[in-house]
Amino acid sequence: MIIKGRVWKYGDDINTDVIFPGKYTYTVLEPSEMAKHALEDLDPSFAKEARPGDIIVAGKNFGCGSSREQAATCLKALGIGAVVAKSFARIFYRNAINQGLLVIQCPELFEFVVNGEEIKIDVDKGEIHTLGGKVFRFSPLPEFVRRIIDDGGLIPHLRKRFKER
């Protein structure tokens, strides 16, 4: 799988409240509606201007805070190709996998990309290519995690499993 998209670069400790505000948790129910509020309290231009395939590049501890899965759902519904961060908060990391949103830990990339630059991720080879020709490697996801993402998230994955029973 190859993902190509523009970089949206953010800093450290981007929390779930700024990714998807708590006040919407019980009133905004459809993923397509959630997408309209993605990163609302961090960067109001993001949800309006992000295009399918775009890539978020962030600092450490991306997704810290609440267990709200909509923080991953809204990014996935917006068509975000991947989130590449120095590190992730654990509940967000699991939620992203369960939503079929590709999350890549690659601490080295951050310093070498600028906002708006187009980068390419080769998921199978575990490589990220920048516009300037630099290549960064990341550890491939464990096989069982990759299967969940390839099935489009945990729910479609389980649906398949139960059908096969």
Partner: peptide, 10 residues
């Protein structure tokens, strides 16, 4: 420990 919604459904 905390988990998300899909995971709890699972």
């Amino acid at each position: 420990t905390g988990i998300g919604r899909s995971e709890m459904a699972g």
